[in-house]
């Protein structure tokens, strides 16, 4: 029986794989890489590509990751997979969109929080809710 190591592959939206593996191969940012039990602690980026794992009963499984990070500790391996391919300019475009939306809404509006007005508005809303609650209780 070969040495096995706990391996977890997770993405932000779901748990992809969790179990004992004999060996894991993945495409790291510097090239193909294989990890077995007892590997030194390591942290590396992953390039888009397949992740092959050999589970403890000898079965081979393949998952595709579109990037992410591989963390190795002597007793466990974790892959933090991205859910989509990431590129700097794409991130930049998304940021610009968010910024634009805010700017459009901010046009001719003060950038200072009007605390008294805000408090008044919230108090009003809270009072409405309280009144409803009271009305309800009185009914009972």
């Amino acid at each position: 029986m070969a040495n096995t190591v706990q391996c977890d592959i997770v993405s932000a939206q779901e748990n992809i794989f969790s179990g004992k593996v004999e060996m894991l191969t993945a495409t790291a940012s510097n090239g193909e890489l294989g990890v077995m039990a007892g590997h030194a602690p390591m942290l590396t980026g992953l390039a888009p590509g397949p992740v092959n794992i050999k589970t403890e009963d000898g079965a081979e499984e393949v998952y595709f990751v579109s990037g992410g990070y591989l963390e190795v500790q002597p007793h466990h391996i974790s892959i933090l997979a991205d859910t989509a391919q990431r590129a700097h300019d794409m991130d930049e475009a998304a940021a610009k969109q968010a910024r634009d939306e805010a700017e459009r809404e901010m046009a001719n509006r003060s950038s200072e929080v009007d605390y008294s007005r805000a408090a008044a508005r919230l108090a009003e809303a809270a009072a409405q809710l309280r009144t409803l609650e009271k009305l309800r209780r009185k009914k009972r």
């Binding site: 989509a84 968010a98 939306e101 805010a102 003060s110 950038s111 200072e112 929080v113």
Partner: peptide
């Protein structure tokens, strides 16, 4: 109420994907 809004995103729906939030977080 005012306030310096530097980024904003709406209509994320019931099942947002992690990518949709990249922009606002990046700002």
């Amino acid at each position: 109420v005012g306030g310096n809004k530097v980024a904003s995103q709406s209509q994320i729906g019931d099942r947002p994907s992690a990518e949709e939030l990249i922009g606002t977080v990046k700002v």
